[in-house]
Amino acid sequence: MSVRQALLALLEEGPMYGYQLRSEFERRTGATWPLNVGQVYTTLTRLERDGLVTESGADGEGHVIYEVTEAGRDEVATWFTTPVARTTPPRDELAIKLALAVTVPGVDVGTVIQQQRSATISALQDYTRLKRDRRDTTPGDLAWTLVLDSLIFNAEAEVRWLDHCEARLRRAALESPAAPLTTSADAEERTAR
């Protein structure tokens, strides 16, 4: 995750110390990707080394305050104007699991799919419950709602993909009875015949 660019972007709003940066980040993303303060300070140290931020003194309580440099602003501008790379998809455990489930003998793929669908819809229900009670009064609220929407759309895409896998596997099973998918309903039908 681009903690580096996110922190730089936050510093565009004005100088801040590490703890403030962490809470500002979490306010906008609803703590979906929690940052620990150590990670924030390590990142700030690297940003300083690379000349993207400088220390601009300390507050009354001794917190070191950082501000973004000209080079830092350029980096933020580049980040916002460059699309997120989609060339190397992140490793997707579910896709890998399913790819193996359909090929390794003895796996009940129908159950693998249904259990995942159930779990993903439960997560969707949780996100939806969070969303239901939200009123977007500040830009920070709106930012978190949009992050929540992203989680919702991703979970939905996963369920659609699972539906697709199931339909595809069932068709394959009809065309060649040796194909891997057996759902409980199929099994029931087979014993009935």
């Binding site: 669908r117 819809i121 979970a155 759902t183 039908e189």
Partner: peptide, 26 residues
């Protein structure tokens, strides 16, 4: 509904396959 995003507004989600309830969330 066949859309998960809409079903997620419900308290419970019931899954039907070939006329049988195969699973349920919530």
């Amino acid at each position: 509904t066949h859309e998960a995003r809409h079903a997620a507004w419900a308290d419970r989600v019931v899954f039907l396959r070939d006329g049988v309830i195969v699973d349920e969330t919530g």
